[in-house]
Amino acid sequence: QQAPAQAKAKFSARIGHLEAPTQPRHQGLLKVAQLVKERTKGEVDLQIFPSSQLGNQRVMTEGTQFGTIQGTVSPAAFLGGFDPAVSVLDIPYLYPTNRAASQKLREGPFGKAILDSFSSRGLVAITIWPNGRKSMTSNKPLANLDAYKGQKFRVMDSKILQEQFAAVGASAVSIAFGELYTALQTGVVDGQENPLDTIATMKYFEVQKNLVVTEHGAMEDIVLFNPGWWKSLPANYQQIIAKAFDEVRPEVERNKEAAQQTALETIRKAGMQVRVADEAERQRLGKAMYARAKAAYLERAGAEGQKLVALYEADIKKAGN
């Protein structure tokens, strides 16, 4: 029933994700699939299905648990229902602005602990890929902290993100991705948060006036596999796959940063008011939001969350010295 090219592979995996084929994550995944194919002499075939063809993210993650698909690359923000511990990544300004310092966190004890937390949830998490930072847009001014008061922002379904906005006096509204463009146009919500390239691809600049490049939320991709499938692989193939993801990661990050730069140009040209928040403003926003977002996180993640936060704060301190 499979095409002859795929019949040769001993281990084949369907990997689903929700980004469009033109976006950096998909390009990166294609590269990984190609490297893995070469290095296993065609024995491991990773088939990548973009743009939610295999279902929405909840369905893809669940499918990875069931083994109906073998893998998914999911934004951490969509994984809280499966593993409350991972929602630590939803806390605003968790990562420093500096990209190299952020990578240290990802690779260090903190990042490892996040990956480990999936093993008791029927998933194998092998690595974290960076996928840009969220910024704020709104039809109302976002000149300073006070300006957020009373505004309505669309957020993904997450308690922590709701608290992030509550902390600055704004309210969070949950709206389906497909309805967001129209909701911004008619004014059901004033603003939204997304990485710059999403803002450009979804053409939110057509229906939004102000952009502040706050980079307040890290969009972290968790690479997940079905444990049964993963264990069926010989150890050296597991290594080849994990190594391929690590090798391609810098390129994905470069492409993502480049895509954000291009997006920023597009957004500027489209006539949106653009302001890049300086480090001081980011500190102010972070200070205002961190405590309540962290409290919301700990309420859900409990002792496991306490441990992760402690690890995080230790890692940050180490980096500071």
């Binding site: 469009a20 084929p21 033109t22 497909g178 463009y181 129209t182 979804m202 053409k203 057509e206």
Partner: peptide, 19 residues
Amino acid sequence: IPPSITLIIYGWLTGTSIA
């Protein structure tokens, strides 16, 4: 006739201006 979720999804998939 706008709004249309179909056209929004097409715009997202292809990067075409939704307006």
